Amino acid sequence: MRHSIVAGNWKMHKTVSETHAFLDDLIEKLPTDKEVEVIIAPPFTSLFSAVHHLEHTNIVVAAQNMHQAEGGAFTGEISAQMLKGVGVETVIIGHSERRHYFHETDAILADKVNTALNHNMRVIYCIGEELKDRQNKQYLNVIFNQLKDGLFHLKKEAWTNIVIAYEPVWAIGTGETASPEQVQEMHAFIRREIEREYGNETAINTSILYGGSVKPSNAEELFSQEDVDGGLIGGAALQAEDFTAIIEAI
């Protein structure tokens, strides 16, 4: 069911000891009066300890990535079964940095989605256009194709385990943020395309997050948009005070 989510993607930050210190701080500061799901996505090295550190809380631990194969000769990769084995049941797939630096195509990402769902994992699926796409007024086509090629092969019932994260590439780690109007336009477009493919019930029950330089100073305005159900937070998720302030903004 559609609900508010604030997820922190730590990327390649924090050792195990730094993870524990952050989580202690977050648990202390976390508001108790908010109906919002809080997710943290540490690096692989901290997943196991984070799950155990948070076992008596409502904070969810997610992985930042996984391989599409069940196992095999893929040096340095992590499978869905390995993630499940350490208690992780949510995974981020398709982040723009994975697409850009590691050349992950929509076809590869579709395979990853299939594998995650086959293991009853929840997927936070990232989509977003580059600056040239927006300047050329092709951004709607780019987003539609990412949805179609990455997710629209799924059966309707699979969408209960799908969360969408819209992250304009030009607003990630740049300090630039899409305007609230631009964000709402894109989230409404995504929801309409889901409705065209799967019907109104699926569309209204899919949580769509915004990712792109969300910080305490702009979170409330972004989250107040009708089709924005929370955020996938990068840099601001690395400080418990900032992350908590963003959660408070829901």
Score class of each variant (00 low, 15 high):
residue 198 Y to V: 07
residue 198 Y to N: 02
residue 198 Y to W: 01
residue 199 G to P: 12
residue 199 G to H: 05
residue 199 G to Y: 15
residue 200 N to H: 15
residue 200 N to S: 15
residue 201 E to Y: 15
residue 201 E to W: 13
residue 202 T to C: 14
residue 202 T to M: 14
residue 203 A to C: 03
residue 204 I to L: 13
residue 204 I to W: 14
residue 205 N to H: 14
residue 205 N to T: 09
residue 205 N to E: 08
residue 205 N to L: 09
residue 207 S to A: 10
residue 208 I to L: 15
residue 208 I to V: 13
residue 209 L to V: 09
residue 210 Y to P: 11
residue 210 Y to R: 04
residue 210 Y to I: 03
residue 210 Y to H: 08
residue 211 G to H: 02
residue 212 G to C: 05
residue 214 V to M: 04
residue 214 V to H: 06
residue 215 K to P: 11
residue 216 P to H: 07
residue 217 S to L: 06
residue 217 S to T: 01
residue 218 N to Q: 01
residue 219 A to P: 02
residue 220 E to D: 00
residue 220 E to Q: 12
residue 221 E to I: 08
residue 222 L to C: 01
residue 222 L to F: 03
residue 222 L to M: 09
residue 222 L to Q: 04
residue 223 F to E: 04
residue 223 F to N: 00
residue 223 F to R: 08
residue 224 S to T: 00
residue 224 S to F: 01
residue 224 S to C: 01
residue 225 Q to P: 02
residue 225 Q to H: 10
residue 227 D to T: 14
residue 227 D to Q: 11
residue 228 V to E: 10
residue 229 D to Y: 13
residue 229 D to V: 04
residue 230 G to W: 00
residue 230 G to A: 11
residue 231 G to D: 04
residue 232 L to C: 13
residue 232 L to D: 00
residue 233 I to D: 06
residue 233 I to W: 01
residue 233 I to L: 04
residue 234 G to R: 00
residue 236 A to I: 13
residue 237 A to P: 00
residue 238 L to E: 08
residue 238 L to P: 09
residue 239 Q to I: 07
residue 239 Q to F: 12
residue 240 A to Y: 02
residue 240 A to P: 03
residue 241 E to K: 13
residue 241 E to V: 00
